[in-house]
Simulated assay, not measured.
Amino acid sequence: MFQTLARLLRHRWLDAADARRAVPPALAERLRRRVAASEQRHTGEVRICVEGGLPASYLWRHVRDRVPMPQVVRERALMMFSKLRVWDTEHNNGVLIYVLLAEHAIELVADRGIDRLVGPAGWQAMALHLGRAIAGGRVEDGLTQALEEVSAALVAHFPQAAGNAAPVNELPDEPVLR
């Protein structure tokens, strides 16, 4: 019971201001530039979302319906994938890098075009690397490494054709901090 109460308080305590502290403006700008540079090398789209804590409705489902927290976090990441329209790319090759600070949780959500090519083991390995960096307090290192690994997968499977005009940027490049 104490663990559940502590978890709920942690989620209510951490908010967008904590996400902005974890990713201050200078880091957000560096990440934006890295996403933009990455997207010059492939036809995919990458979004980064860092959230302080879960909304009350997700916490309520965890407590009332006893939905395991990892499942709740995954559902939230899927919702952000949808809200940020990462699924809405021409080649179905968008990827969301989602970090939930209150749980030190990381989710990589990929659209079907790239997901089937990388597979669950590939995404889990990338998330594990990011998770280690975040747990060690190295947010920038973790997000940069995750972006590089996601970019490598997109370049391998959806490279930007040589000689083509600059790729169309279908989604904003800046990180979402909530």
Rank of each mutant, 00 (worst) to 15 (best):
W87M: 02
V72M: 15
R32D: 00
D111V: 06
P172W: 11
L171Q: 07
L147W: 06
G53Y: 12
H104F: 09
E140T: 05
Q160I: 05
Q71W: 15
F81R: 08
R32S: 10
H104R: 15
A135F: 01
A165I: 10
N93P: 07
G119N: 09
C49M: 13
D141E: 09
P120Y: 11
L117N: 01
H129D: 04
L154S: 02
P55G: 06
E39Q: 10
A161D: 03
R138E: 00
R66L: 15
G142N: 07
I97P: 01
E140G: 01
V46I: 15
V35E: 03
I97D: 01
A156V: 04
K83E: 02
N92S: 10
L84S: 00
Y98P: 00
V86W: 09
N93G: 06
L84H: 03
V155R: 13
A121S: 12
V46H: 00
A152G: 01
V50R: 03
L143M: 07
I114Q: 06
A127I: 09
A77M: 14
I97Y: 08
F81G: 01
Y98S: 01
H42W: 11
W60V: 02
R47K: 05
L108S: 09
A110C: 08
A125C: 06
V99A: 07
A133F: 07
N92I: 02
L100M: 10
V67D: 09
C49L: 14
D88V: 02
M80D: 04
C49R: 01
L27D: 05
L128V: 10
R116H: 12
Y98N: 02
A36P: 06
T43C: 08
I114A: 07
E51K: 12
T89D: 03
A28V: 14
L101A: 02
Q71C: 11
D111Q: 06
G113Y: 13
Q145C: 03
A162Y: 03
L78N: 12
D65M: 15
A110E: 04
V72Q: 14
G122S: 05
S57V: 15
H62E: 14
G163V: 04
A56K: 10
E90A: 11
D65Q: 15
Q40D: 00
D111S: 07
S82E: 09
G94V: 00
L108P: 08
L147Q: 00
A121D: 13
R66E: 14
L171R: 06
E107L: 12
G119P: 08
S151E: 08
V155N: 03
Q40N: 04
N164C: 08
G131V: 07
R76P: 05
D115S: 12
V155T: 10
A36H: 12
W87K: 05
V99D: 05
L117I: 08
A28C: 13
L27V: 13
E45W: 11
G136D: 05
L27E: 06
G163F: 13
L31T: 07
R47H: 02
G113I: 08
L143K: 03
R132C: 01
Q71A: 14
G53K: 12
E170W: 14
G52Q: 08
L128R: 13
S57K: 14
L96P: 00
E170D: 08
D111Y: 12
A156D: 12
H42L: 09
R30W: 05
E148M: 04
F81S: 03
V139A: 04
I134G: 00
V50W: 13
